[in-house]
């Protein structure tokens, strides 16, 4: 039990006050994990934005001699078919960020809607939504995906994002529901009701802003999760049928035995890209937790 570890109540009072917002910025700028993660993400983002301008070729064009190692002309070398790996990489990065934002965003929206409604309304509404959440939670996602992909002729990044969104919201909904429950019992919610404020405005005007830091962290985590999920889909062959993505590059390199042929330049860039981006997001999340949670701050 924690009793002997002498008083832990005082510090928590410091949490969540607005003065703490400036304080949060102060700690954010000094948090190595957060700053480091953010730097990595920004580097890749810049690469995704300006990279395609540095190359004249499209990602799927057959531009040069096949199986070339990196050179001054083809910075990351070429594939078995003579496609430019650098061009594939930078376009793939774009797809990765797109799927992260769209997939993560969609997950967040569905999760928030379900979580807020269930948590605030309670009762029958809560029980129904909870049941749906649990059903989706235990669905064998991979099997469902295989079935879906068999029916989908054309798969785009957007479709991928939709699939991700539809299957990964339950844990977000759960977490938000729990937080909403605890905030709903705070007196300021009752006071808003006594002021005649309608339910929707109570949820988005009173409850949600209190979870802003938490929602932000959830989104960061979802972004990383969506990127990883998309890469997995690509890797098992459910990637976009048009365009390119980092996961699809990995998939292709394996399909054409790049490893056995010693073409490390084909799979190392997308591998590093995915690992670094997802890793950076998770590390940022840990960093943010330290920033927002005074108990974890080192002084």
């Amino acid at each position: 039990m924690t009793v002997p570890s002498v008083d832990q109540g005082v510090d928590t009072k410091v949490d969540r006050v607005p003065g703490a917002r400036r304080e949060a910025l102060y700690f954010a700028l000094r948090n190595k994990k957060l700053v480091g993660g953010l730097t990595v993400v920004l580097l890749f983002l810049v690469l995704a934005v300006v990279g395609p301008m540095l190359t004249a070729h499209g990602p799927r064009e057959y531009v040069g001699p096949p199986m070339q190692p990196p050179s001054s002309e083809y910075w990351f070398g070429t594939t078995t078919f003579g496609q430019d790996v650098f061009a594939q990489f930078v376009y793939g990065l774009r797809a990765t960020f797109r799927v992260g934002i769209l997939g993560g965003g969609l997950t967040a929206i569905i999760g928030m809607f379900v979580g807020f409604t269930a948590g605030y309304r309670g009762g029958l509404v809560d029980e129904t939504l909870n049941m749906i959440t649990n059903v989706v939670l235990v669905l064998p996602v991979l099997a469902v995906l295989l079935i879906i992909s068999a029916y989908l002729r054309v798969r785009s990044v957007e479709v991928q994002a939709l699939i991700i969104g539809l299957f990964s919201w339950p844990w977000v909904a759960r977490a938000i529901r729990a937080q909403t429950f605890s905030l709903r019992s705070r007196d300021f919610v009752d006071l808003a009701r006594l002021s005649g404020v309608p339910t929707r405005r109570i949820i988005f005007g009173e409850i949600a802003p209190n979870m802003a830091s938490y929602l932000f962290m959830v989104f960061i985590l979802l972004f990383g999760g969506a990127v990883l999920f998309a890469a997995t889909l690509d890797f098992i062959g459910l990637g976009p049928t048009e365009g390119i993505s980092l996961g699809l590059m990995l998939n292709n390199s394996v399909k054409w035995s790049a490893l056995q042929l010693g073409m490390s330049w084909w799979f190392i860039p997308p591998g590093i890209g995915i690992t670094a981006i997802v890793g950076a997001f998770y590390i940022m999340n840990v960093g943010l937790d330290e920033v927002f949670n005074p108990k974890l701050r080192e002084m």
Partner: peptide
């Protein structure tokens, strides 16, 4: 401590 009860 103050809040000992909730610290359990």
């Amino acid at each position: 401590p103050q809040y000992a009860m909730s610290a359990m």
